[in-house]
Design a protein around this nucleic acid. Sequence first.
DNA 1: TAGTTGATGTGGTTGGACCACATGGTTTAC
DNA 2: GTAAACCATGTGGTCCAACCACATCAACTA
Lengths: 235, 235
Amino acid sequence: MRTHQLVLAWIERQLSDGALSVGGRLPAERALAEQLAVSRTSVREAIRILEAMGVVRAGVGSGPEAGTVVISDPTAALGSALRLHVATQHLPVSDIVETRILLETWAAARAKPDAPELELAATLLGEMDAVERVARTADDFLALDIRFHLALADAAGNAVVSAMMGSLRESIQGYTARFTANLPDWAATASRLQAEHRDILAAIRNDDGAHAATLVAAHIEGYYREGGVGPAAEE
Amino acid sequence: MRTHQLVLAWIERQLSDGALSVGGRLPAERALAEQLAVSRTSVREAIRILEAMGVVRAGVGSGPEAGTVVISDPTAALGSALRLHVATQHLPVSDIVETRILLETWAAARAKPDAPELELAATLLGEMDAVERVARTADDFLALDIRFHLALADAAGNAVVSAMMGSLRESIQGYTARFTANLPDWAATASRLQAEHRDILAAIRNDDGAHAATLVAAHIEGYYREGGVGPAAEE
DNA sequence: TAGTTGATGTGGTTGGACCACATGGTTTAC
DNA sequence: GTAAACCATGTGGTCCAACCACATCAACTA
């Protein structure tokens, strides 16, 4: 077994045992290296991997922001992994869109009408209206749009689905932004999207999960079809 | 931006541009370091991350197995990421099981009756029977069981769903094996599972996706409930 | 008292050295 | 001539020692 994997195993063990939990700090790199009788290089390689996995955050200097602390950001790991594999052309964008529809449809059907995340979703709806009125820039709108959809996914109360939703969205964000910039009439598209958003949120609040799911599927499919991407497109 | 991220960006760019694709080789670490005007350490940190993401494989020595070559194993990345986050206690096992049911149900409903992956699934069924007759060891059976379910997922023809299925299964494999070992009557459980497997495969081959989906959901839920884990359990 | 300064400890980066390993060409023994 | 032994080469794997940038906090100074 390679040395950095030994370090990884040690840290994972600490996490499983509860000796290390979210918010906790790893020993300093030099100290950990000495403790495990390995070089600092190997410790750093392990930490690099954990950082890429969204398990720790490393900060220089002193104080609360410094040191290597345990966090939990599964979305980061899944997102960059998916993005890289999309880059290798081995994960078709159409499959990602299809999966997104699957997960988000399920989330919409499952979300409870009184889920607190729906408040955030409603707020984001209002902000998107404001952005539309004032600036009419697609970028700002899309940033809010992403958060809206993530809020809906969160409302289903499944951390794995939430993380996957976020990562799917992140992995094709560049793709989405590119074709959005080329839409002929962004203002019209935006107002249509907003109307659909409102309908989805209303359906969930009416406890009509089946209807909400249908609306979500149509919403996402329609958007990507407009941009020429989708389950039907051949990448 | 940290140095290793620069290297990561360069490699990702090469992948996106097609200058590097699956099966291709990265320049040697020392050469790449010189080319990008960074230290070999930074190059290695980047490669470590890519390796953890299932994007490259590093091998020592000379010949075909040596050097750093581009592969594509999304399951590896998602799997270890999920496993680590389960270790941090921030991803409940019940959420993973629930997500697995969601994905596998969808795959069963979508799989085409003539999908080639179903042949593999049928073969695995036979092997599980053989294992049951001869050895009656749960470990061997479970290994085949995993491959059977993955084959079903692959039959749906969505690479993202396949990768996620594999990673979900991998991330809780330890969990599953642990409670399986404690089942009171493994032989009875195994033969029940086999009967259910057969029904699922038959439903798919009859093009009855809806029925197949129902059977899959019951199959998975039943198994984990027997072990005390599931969407209903509080972890 | 208020401001400056320096000591301390953190991760970030570098260059160099050596190891284990696998291949392939060269030399040697028969 | 053939087969075995050998060594040169190039790969990733590991370690070490040093230095940097940064953030904090205590000590010192005006």
